[in-house]
Every structure is written in structure tokens, then in C-alpha cells.
Design a protein around this nucleic acid. Structure first.
Lengths: 191, 191
DNA sequence: CGATTCTTTGAAAACAGTCAATCTGTGTGG
DNA sequence: CCACACAGATTGACTGTTTTCAAAGAATCG
């Protein structure tokens, strides 16, 4: 399981053998069965989570009980509630597993300490955050400017792995559409 | 004009007198008249821009010629196209002035160099990026889950300074609504 | 002022949402 | 191994919000 992380990280950051051992020692593995929660609203999120295998979804539930998908995380993605992590406040989000999933958890304190001491790793994390932010901006742009069909087409183009793997109604929620509307759109493209 | 920047930064980062002088020396002031462009699609954006006075808007123009507002930047905000800055590719965005505006420009190369050499400043910039990312996530959430009226109410609550200062049709575009719809919503709240 | 830009209002049309029923596939327990 | 239950997907009819188009009314600026 650590192997997956190693294969992900090695091409991106130069670490000495000693640094690598140290980073690895910070992590703890967690296995989630389908439908099991990694984070529940009300809890404080205090880790960085790396997905080695499986698929997580991250979402909120509004006053009417409706779920709103924020993110899907598959192999080689990070997960977690950054807001809770940074502020120390209880999260308003849920994270649970869409499939049996293996996760590596790095406690915030240790992880940040490591980043401070290893500039190359720090730079990597900064770059990751920067790219994540750009992705978020693109999502905003699509959300405010595209119609339902365009939203779906862009989603498929951006995340072809997810379009096949995640239930349609959750993709619909991610895009701000009803499941019925997305079903009809998908129907069009097949014909 | 540098004074505005100093008052903004001093409470947030501890810099020595020497560091402060050095940072200041990196900046160049630019004045923009209303409607003047700071960035035009096709140009490469290579700076960090800090607004000392006035108001900028940042937007794209789609294939149909419709503008989509990405951001407004008033006093004590940063502006610029991060995507172009990071990738070095020509920007797809426009930035122009809604009012006469004063901007401080920091060339990327010098700015990044300074951040590398002054850890406290680096940490400040990281924190800024982190908060900006959280704001973007909140915007996504509203965009996918709220109706038109809620979007506007949240906008007013989040940016009371902007609601009064920016033309309605641009706020509408920022929220992904037509100007007519927003006008009607605003009408309701007045009664 | 005269011109431009912005806002408001009305009426019609389009798009997406809701509700409800049916269909499909998957997984589980008897 | 089958049957049943359940979650998810699809389809149809209807509703409702938002958009579009058009025209008229403010506000702003040179």
C-alpha cells in the first residue's frame, strides 16, 4: 500500500532514503469498506489522506437533506476537508467510500513539520495546492457559464475515469443537476 | 501608494527593515484609468498585482461573445491570472478597471525569489493561497446548490463592499445569472 | 445636454426540476 | 442457486424557475 504512494511521489519529489523512511513512518494505513465513513460532519479533520486504492466521495448535506458532491478521490488523489484542517473547526462535510478503499493518513502536525524541514517536499505540496486551486477555478467557470449538456461533456473529458465509475446521480449532484436531467443528457449522446 | 501595501502587509508578516526595503524595491506602480486593461487575452501574465485603490474585474469572453466574471479586486486584494502565471501560457482572461485604479506590480521571478529567501513571507503567501482556495470551493458549492435568490444573498453577505460598487449585470455574470433575473431579485428585497 | 451604458419591466419561450412509475442490475440471504 | 430486496437508472407528464427578447426608463459621462 505504501508502494502506491511511493510510485506516486518518487517521480515528483527527490527525497533522500532517510527522508523517505521518515515520511513513510508518519503514515498510517486505513481500510474502508464500501459505504464506510472517513469523515463525518461534526468531526474535526486533522490529516492529509492519500488514496491508494478505491474511491471516496466528499459531500455536504443541506437543510433539506439533499447531498451535494464536492469531490471524488480515486487512486493517487488526496482527500480531506481543508477548511476544517486549517481552522480546526468541526467539519460540515462527509467523506465515505464508494468502493472498498485503502487510504494512507498523515497527521497534520507531523506532515507540516516534515514539509517545513524538507524544502523540496514543501515545494511539491505548494504546487499541488496551486493546481487544485486552478481546477477549482475551472469548475467555477463551468458552473456559472455552461448549460447542463456542456457541464456533463466537460466532466467526462476532465475525468474520464470517474464518468464510468461513479453513480450517475452523484455526478449529477457534482454538476449541480438533477439525476433525471443527467440521465436524459446521457441518453442523447448514446443515440 | 506603497503605504497602502505596507499597512496591509505589516500586521500579517514580520519583516526586517532591510527585507521590507527590498520587497518594496521589487514593486512598480501602475495607474489604470477606468476601462483600461491590465491584462488582455493572448498576453502572458507574469506578475503578482496588488490593488491599492480602485476596482478591477477579471473575466473571460466565450465563443458567443458573452463575458463571464471571474473575480473583482478592490483595495487590498490581489489580482492576476494564476494559470498563465504558473504555466507561462497566454492567458484566456481579461482584467480591466471599473474605476480609476492604482496597482502595485511584482514581477513573478523576483517575488518568488524573495519568498524563497524569507520564510515568513513564504508562509504568508501560502496562507493567502489556501484561503483563496477555500473561497473558491465555497463559490463552487453555492453555484451547484443554490437558487438565484440565495446566490445573490450570499454574495451580498460575503462581499458587502462589492454589492454597492460593481454594476449589477457584472454581479449577475459572476453568479451565473442573467442581469434581468438579478434585477428582479433585487426588486423583491427592497419591498 | 446628447450619447452611452446600465437597469428595469413585461411577455413568451426554453431549460431544468419535480413527482411518480417502471425498469435494471447487483448483492444477499434463505 | 434462486428469489427477493434494494439502490440506481430511465422515462413520461407536469411544474416552475430562469432566460431571452424587446422596449422603455434611469443614471452617468464626456
Amino acid at each position: 500500500m505504501v508502494n502506491v504512494f511511493e510510485e506516486y511521489l518518487r517521480p515528483q519529489v527527490q527525497l533522500t532514503a532517510e527522508e523517505w523512511t521518515r515520511l513513510q513512518a508518519l503514515s498510517s494505513a486505513q481500510h474502508l469498506r464500501k459505504r464506510q465513513f472517513l469523515l463525518h460532519a461534526g468531526q474535526v479533520w486533522q490529516s492529509y489522506a492519500f488514496v491508494c486504492r478505491g474511491c471516496l466521495r466528499q459531500y455536504t448535506i443541506d437543510a433539506k437533506g439533499v447531498e451535494h458532491m464536492l469531490k471524488f478521490s480515486i487512486e493517487n488523489w488526496w482527500a480531506g476537508d481543508r477548511e476544517s484542517l486549517v481552522t480546526g473547526q468541526p467539519s460540515r462535510q462527509y467523506i465515505d467510500a464508494l468502493e472498498d478503499t485503502d487510504v494512507l493518513l498523515f497527521p497534520k502536525v507531523d506532515f507540516d513539520q516534515f514539509a517545513r524541514e524538507v524544502p523540496a517536499f514543501h515545494a511539491f505540496i505548494d504546487g499541488l495546492l496551486g493546481r487544485t486551486y486552478l481546477a477549482s477555478q475551472r469548475r467555477v467557470q463551468t458552473a456559472i457559464s455552461a448549460d447542463a449538456e456542456t457541464k456533463y461533456r466537460e466532466f467526462v473529458q476532465t475525468y474520464p475515469q470517474l464518468a464510468l465509475r461513479v453513480p450517475l446521480r452523484m455526478i449529477a449532484s457534482y454538476l449541480g443537476l438533477s439525476a433525471e436531467t443527467l440521465s436524459r443528457i446521457r441518453g442523447l449522446n448514446t443515440k
